[in-house]
Amino acid sequence: MEQILVYFYTYKEVIFVIALSIFLGIEVISHVPSVLHTPLMSGANAISGVIIIGGIILVGHADTSHISTELVLGVFAIIFATLNVAGGFVVTDRMLEMFKKKKK
């Protein structure tokens, strides 16, 4: 019990962020009309490409004097994450554009 409390105190900021983000996610998304299920999923999917920051940090501090596994895989991580980000946002926009034009 005491250990859990120690753990909680040590990481209290992070735990706050997690708890509030979960609540926020649920609040923001609930009651979405089914018309928007696909674009919402696809837009959220693009946000999960935020892993690209990890890729940038990784490659950013990698040793570039020679080609290492770390550098190569890091570059792939960035490429894949960008695919997720760019593709995700563009495809969502394309979908929503379709919804838009027949509003009139």
Binding site: S21, G25, L40, V50, I51, G54
Partner: peptide
């Protein structure tokens, strides 16, 4: 998974973004 990576770097934007998507996906 992206949120987990956010914890590696202690990066709030990654943590929040990842968890938001995780929560949204779970609700769906």
């Amino acid at each position: 998974a992206a949120a987990m990576a956010g914890f590696i770097y202690n990066n709030q934007a990654m943590i929040l973004g990842g968890i938001l998507v995780g929560a949204a996906g779970s609700i769906l």
